[in-house]
């Protein structure tokens, strides 16, 4: 067992897959000698060389376009955009090419690429702090992973790289610095954000986590909280608080949005009969909206209260930390919403 943060766990997954399969290559801005904007690819160019760890021009269209082309030619590219916000410059390559080629070619071609996309607010401003996972979720042909722990990140990324279809891998920037259980520094040094311990140590042996398999991060009988990425940790913090009041939250982390593990979500709601969906996205047409709709449609007979959502208001995020902090769902906000659900006040 090793104690590592999510950045190190992703680095390990890349290293393992590149050792395992010489067709795995990396593309991105400053991912080579510099080690990437968030130091995720640190040390990889030294082991695998500049042919397989390619620094690219500052062009998302070029990065994603090259990845699509390389994938069609049999490579397994892992492309990185520095911030998921910038994916818009390569959106045609992702949405109209990568996502559709397999089906448009009648299954004759496939695009086994991964796009690593750092998401989440970290006080970098409106164009650097978004959580746009629903953009990808809304595009048939793309798979979407969104890990919350180092353990999950490693196992999911390895599965994503081996998957024959394009996978967008959403990495929350605040979580890069957090550790798995047993580690210190559970507070992110850059932001002071606290993250509750979760998951387990990253084991030495290779572990794959299948895409489309949610995990119940904490069992509880009263309210199901479905949360992704950083919100998993805030939901766990809220669960710890409410446990003192005798209210037991069940925290479900879907881990992948496409495919979505509907069974685990619906089974949990069938136990608790109350659902709260918490994501960092702006609320409208978010993954939380999709999950809430799923519960309303397929879990209707199990509900003993309306499905509730917490998210960021429909606003571009402000740069100012004190303004930003008030907009993103907090553990206190989850406590309040879940408490109201548990007490049948809403």
């Amino acid at each position: 067992m090793s104690v590592m943060n999510m950045s190190q766990a992703i680095n390990l997954a890349l290293r393992e897959e590149m050792r395992r399969d010489p067709k795995v290559i990396l593309l991105g801005e400053d991912i080579g000698r510099f080690g990437g904007a968030f130091q995720v690819t640190k040390g990889l160019v030294e082991e695998f060389g500049e042919e397989r760890v390619r620094d690219t021009p500052l062009s998302e269209a070029a990065i994603i376009g090259c990845a699509v082309g390389a994938a069609l030619m049999g490579w397994k590219p892992v492309a990185e955009v520095q911030y998921s916000d910038f994916v818009t410059c390569g959106f045609d390559q992702l949405v109209n090419q990568a996502a559709k080629i397999h089906l448009m070619s009648g299954g004759g071609l496939s695009v086994p690429m991964v796009l690593r996309a750092p998401i989440g607010a970290r006080e970098h401003g409106a164009q650097h702090d978004q959580s746009p996972e629903a953009w990808f979720m809304h595009t048939p042909g793309l798979k979407v992973a969104i890990p919350s722990t180092p353990y999950d990140a490693r196992g999911l990324l390895k599965s994503a790289i081996r998957d024959p279809n394009p996978v967008v891998f959403c990495e929350h920037k605040v979580l890069y610095g957090t550790h798995s259980v047993g580690g210190r520094g559970l507070t992110d040094p850059a932001t002071g954000e606290s993250a509750v311990e979760v998951g387990s140590d990253v084991p030495e042996e290779e572990t794959l986590i299948p895409l489309g398999k949610a995990e119940v991060k904490r069992p509880g009988r009263d309210v199901t909280v479905i949360a992704t990425a950083l919100m998993v940790h805030r939901a766990l913090e809220a669960a710890a608080v409410l446990a003192l009041e005798g209210i037991e939250l069940e925290v479900v982390d879907p881990r992948t949005l496409v495919p979505l593990d509907r069974e685990t979500i619906l089974a949990s709601v069938a136990r608790t009969h109350r659902a709260l969906v918490v994501t960092e996205e702006t609320r409208t047409a978010s993954s939380a909206a999709e999950i809430a709709a799923l519960i309303a449609e397929e879990g209707f007979d199990e509900l003993d209260a309306p499905v509730k959502r917490l998210g960021t208001p429909d606003l571009p995020l402000p740069f100012a930390p004190h303004l930003q902090a008030g907009l993103i769902p907090s553990a206190a906000g989850i406590v309040q919403a879940a408490r109201q659900l548990a007490r049948a006040e809403v």
């Binding site: 009969h273 007979d301 199990e302 509900l303 003993d304 209260a305």
Partner: peptide
């Protein structure tokens, strides 16, 4: 308001079941 229509029963799906 819909809830207040005459004769409308306000009940959760689970409770109804």
């Amino acid at each position: 308001q819909i809830d207040r229509l005459p004769g409308r029963l306000i009940i959760t799906p689970l409770a109804r079941r």
